[in-house]
Amino acid sequence: MHRLLSPVLMLVLLALAPAAVTAADFMPAIVFDMGGKFDKSFNQMAYEGAEAWRKENGIAYREFEVTSPVQREQALRQLARRGAAIVIAIGFSQGPAVATVAKEFPNTKFTVIDAIVDAPNVQSVVMREQEGSFLVGMLAAMKSQTGKVGFVGGMDIPLIRKFAAGYRQGALYVNPKIEVLENMTGTTPEAWNDPTRGAELAKAQFGRGVDVIYAAAGGTGLGVYQAAKDAGKYAIGVDSNQNYVQPGTMLTSMVKRIDKVVGEAFTSARDGSWQPGTRDLGLAADAVGWALDQYNRPLITAEMEERCKQATADIVAGKIKVSETCSNAACTN
């Protein structure tokens, strides 16, 4: 009986949903983009943030992993309809969908990460990946014996270019003569999940004299880290702290604290302090940075740490400007 009724009940619930939002049954929700919540990249960071928040607060959240572009809008709408107080959308591709759905549900809060949407009920969070990448670029240049460092990106898109540009500028800041080799893995979504290709690209760069590689390529990066370990060279992780993946050869990780952003958004939506508008988060907000823990402690000298600290202060103070793109090898733009 219950089973037969449930579709009917749902229909009724759907109709009533917008009115049913109360503080008592606070329901947060999150929509991951195509990579999915285990993409070894920004979606996974968001997932880990949501999980940590759930464990801390004992409140379940709804989630959805998008599998086709049209689902972005649909998933946001369905979650808003089901009474989600806040819906977090992960990834630049969700920007237009958030803009559309936010208009339809003016009482629902939306936080979109990596895109800017101008609406009274949308909070846009953008991260300055280039600033964190600048620091790991400095570390790479300081560690390199050969004067050549490498970068392996997933796909040649503006977001990944930000990582590459920051890295290049950081490396040049330390050593103006440094050579930065760049590879992009591919042009189809498989490019984010091809560790074998990642390992080959890393080996090719090692063959050309590179001894530190920064990977910003999701699951493909795992192949880069493994290749670095097998060759006794260094790799730099991305998004989450991946130092533990290959202790001893992971020089550091460029961390992008999406987990923190997700937790903050949920918490602020619950206690009423959530604000619409744009949050442009960089080193100053501690939203990006480089990871130092027991796994890479032996690889980082006091001098390296000191120079990074100084550069961090200079970037925060605006003395060093990190550009989002590099139009040439010297990044003179």
Binding site: T188, E190, N193, D194, T196, R197, Q226
Partner: peptide, 16 residues
Amino acid sequence: LSMAANAGFSRDMTAG
């Protein structure tokens, strides 16, 4: 792929 080129399985690692 998982035991020689890499050291473990990861999602969708056949990549076409």
